[in-house]
Design a protein around this nucleic acid. Structure first.
Lengths: 225, 225
DNA sequence: ACCTAAGTTTAAGATATTGTTAAGTACTCA
DNA sequence: TGAGTACTTAACAATATCTTAAACTTAGGT
């Protein structure tokens, strides 16, 4: 599964904070909050967010000043800053202050726009690096095409099968507990009987051959070297 | 390295001019400014910009009139004109006036949208010489004519169909998620139910044949090699 | 050897995702 | 204005995938 990104939301209005927090959490982001620029910087230093959503107008320290400080701190070299602007008129301030933000989202904030913009910006971070193929013994696992090759022969896996194999093969030999597998492949909020894993293991063995996946009784499964 | 392009920005509000100028300069464009249609034409004759960003509503001479004059002048045969409209509704007016603009960007202007739109338009200009055809297997995709050939047989695609196919075929085999497809083909502002993609996929399969586009359930679609 | 706990296998539902059709909307062009 | 095209949506059908239960097998301790 994908990494969870940390987003720090900064606004002096609690309504807005809650609204954004709700929408981001729903999408699986880790969310932190701050009410002004000073607090934002303090929190940011602690949690090192991947992205900061920053209101322009705030008491104590406004968004522009906060942005300048953040952008000049090497600690936040890889942190994106996105302004929340209430009106078009604020453009001039932003441009004039030359604060170095990465993008702007104008209020009123629409959840869909917010989320797609955020995910687009964070994706930029990952630079569209082509997913490297995972090669273990005579098995090649290609995330990009969702295909698996065994000695060059193409094998189609269903999604859960693929993720399960990908996990096991990511560290050949290592034993993964059922608990861990459930968390990684299914996600923590899903409630699934862990017998389910067995069934998927079975299908994998069926498609790949029994020799690739080993059982360690009382512990879990592993990809055999 | 790419050439630096000259962009003329025309708007009666200085805030907006500064804002756009700031963003364009940051990306390495050469920027000229004008405050109304008449001034725009005067400046344009001097500097011969590659692209003109033109506000619709302006004193002295509005954007629509300016655009008509520009587009009818052979001097500006190779100059692109992009309208800045305050509201989406104004687009109908522009279309109605048939002023000959190449594109429009609606306010409030977002740097990301602005820049990607501009670079897309300018890219069009360069490629006028020789737009590379995309060839995958027995399918040839020609951006210049917006036509697709299957074993030499001409196939007409609608614009969304074309863009969708173009995206998938740009990396044959790679699975594209719905999210990614929406962002690339539809753009991030658009509110479209993602089932819409299915329908377009269906039409593509209808026109090309089922064998070219594969489904990876739970993940997305891909162009089959 | 037996007993028990753990894992395997099968097959039948349940669920989720995608396919397909058809109808509504919006825009374009004559 | 009206026909035609493109796009979007909703509704329902089809199906791959996932999950569960239950019966079966195996491994290891006593």
């Amino acid at each position: 599964m994908e990494n969870t990104y940390k987003v720090l939301v900064v606004d002096d209005e609690n309504d807005i904070l809650e609204f954004i927090q709700y929408n981001l959490k729903k999408e699986g982001y880790e969310v932190a909050l701050a009410h002004n620029g000073q607090e934002a910087i303090d929190v940011a230093k602690k949690i090192k967010p991947d992205l900061i959503l920053l209101d322009v107008m705030m008491p104590v320290m406004d968004g522009i000043e906060a942005c300048k400080q953040i952008k000049s701190d090497p600690l936040f070299e890889h942190t994106f800053v996105v302004f929340l602007t209430a009106r078009a008129e604020e453009y001039s301030e932003i441009a004039g202050f030359n604060a170095g933000a990465d993008d702007y989202i104008s209020k009123p904030i629409k959840p869909r726009v917010l989320l797609s913009r955020i995910s687009a910006i964070l994706r930029r971070k990952n630079k569209e690096v082509a997913e490297p193929k995972l090669t273990v013994g005579d098995i090649v696992i290609d995330r990009e095409t969702f295909l698996v090759y065994k000695n060059g022969a193409k094998i189609q896996l269903a999604r859960k099968e693929f993720e399960l194999l990908y996990l096991l093969a990511s560290k050949p030999g290592k034993v993964f507990t059922r608990e861990y597998i459930l968390e990684k492949v299914w996600g923590d909020e899903v409630l699934v009987v862990d017998r389910t894993i067995d069934v998927h293991i079975r299908k994998l063995r069926e498609k790949l051959g029994d020799e690739y996946i080993g059982t360690v009784k009382g512990v879990g499964y592993k990809f055999e070297l």
